[in-house]
């Protein structure tokens, strides 16, 4: 069902864990759907110098988290924001159709962490990152 690449990232996920002094944390998904991804970043001079994740979910959820963190590690925020779920799928040599949502979640988790970073800096993230889907705290009509 899964490509060798997905299984390899599931067996040996990269960047698992937490960053104690993270200055960007994003969490997406919910228990009811069966997937939660939490991303920790250490951003210095607009560059993601360290990144870790914790994921509750299926094999694809773990593998996409692992791959997404690999793809943005060391990149600038601007570069990280161009990460698409499609790029994650391609890097993993494909995902079964029912698992595509995991790659979307991975993309959203990266964005959520960056949104958190901007908020902590007192910068409105919406013009830069776009809608974060959190309707309750949104100031834009």
């Amino acid at each position: 069902m899964y490509s060798d690449k997905v299984m390899e990232h599931f067996k040996n996920p990269r960047n698992v864990g937490e960053i104690e002094d993270a200055n960007a944390i994003g969490e997406v998904g919910n228990m009811k759907c069966g997937d939660i991804m939490k991303i920790y970043m250490k951003i210095e001079n607009d560059r993601i110098v360290d990144i870790k994740f914790k994921t509750f979910g299926c094999g694809a959820a773990v593998a996409t988290s692992s791959m997404a963190t690999e793809l943005v590690k060391g990149k600038t925020i601007q570069e990280a924001l161009t990460l698409t779920n499609k790029a994650v799928i391609e890097a993993l040599d494909g995902l079964p159709p029912v698992k595509v949502h995991c790659s979307v979640l991975a993309e959203e988790a990266i964005k959520a962490a960056i949104i958190d970073y901007y908020k902590r800096q007192g910068i409105d993230p919406t013009p830069i990152v776009g809608c974060d889907g959190d309707c309750h705290s949104c100031k834009h009509e």
Binding site: V16, E18, K54, T55, F56
Partner: peptide, 8 residues
């Protein structure tokens, strides 16, 4: 569980 944000 070590990998799970929920278990944390």
């Amino acid at each position: 569980r070590d990998m799970s944000p929920v278990y944390d």
